[in-house]
């Protein structure tokens, strides 16, 4: 089955936007609708679209790493973000925050929950890609 030219052209434009949007959702999640889970689902639909237009081989080439590695990475990141709190003598998974900059007298903070959320993102995206690619190549 050869995908239509319209789909392929539109996909090129759309997928990059979808992926950027998914990262945006991930990062804004703490203050507005979004978060790691939703971001990963958006990214997953983006890649699903890409699979339909270009086939699974090109998706594998584009992401370069095995999606199962993404699952492992996400799990590791989530656990490490929990352990950081323990290193500070607090219970496992306690959120710690650091101010990294101050713009217009507003503090920009980064905390371990962000890493946790990135871990969630990686696991969910890794799972979706693992399953879709395996199904597609079956």
């Amino acid at each position: 089955m050869i995908p239509s030219l319209i789909l392929r052209t539109a996909t090129r434009l759309l997928v990059s936007m979808i992926l950027v949007f998914s990262v945006y959702l991930l990062l804004r999640g703490h203050n507005a609708p979004g978060g790691g889970f939703a971001g990963a689902l958006v990214a997953g639909t983006g890649f699903a679209l890409y699979i339909m237009a270009e086939g699974s081989e090109s998706v594998r080439r584009a992401i370069r790493i095995d999606p199962r590695g993404l699952i492992v990475f996400g799990m590791g990141l989530a656990l490490v973000s929990g352990l950081i709190g323990m290193l500070a003598g607090k219970p496992f998974l306690t959120g710690l925050w650091w101010t990294i900059a101050e713009i217009n007298s507003r503090e920009i903070v980064v905390g371990t929950p962000l890493f946790f959320d990135i871990g969630v993102f990686a696991i969910v995206l890794g799972t979706i890609l693992t399953l879709i690619l395996a199904l597609e190549e079956n």
Binding site: R68, G74, L79, G82, G95, F116, I123
Partner: peptide, 30 residues
């Protein structure tokens, strides 16, 4: 440090639950 209560609950207040859930997701995926 978060205004989105849903997400703050997910990644901070009840992050232990989320950890359990992502373990389930990862296991189910593999």
């Amino acid at each position: 440090h978060g205004r989105n209560i849903v997400n703050v609950i997910l990644v901070d207040f009840r992050s232990m639950d989320t950890l359990g859930e992502i373990i389930v997701v990862a296991t189910a995926g593999l």
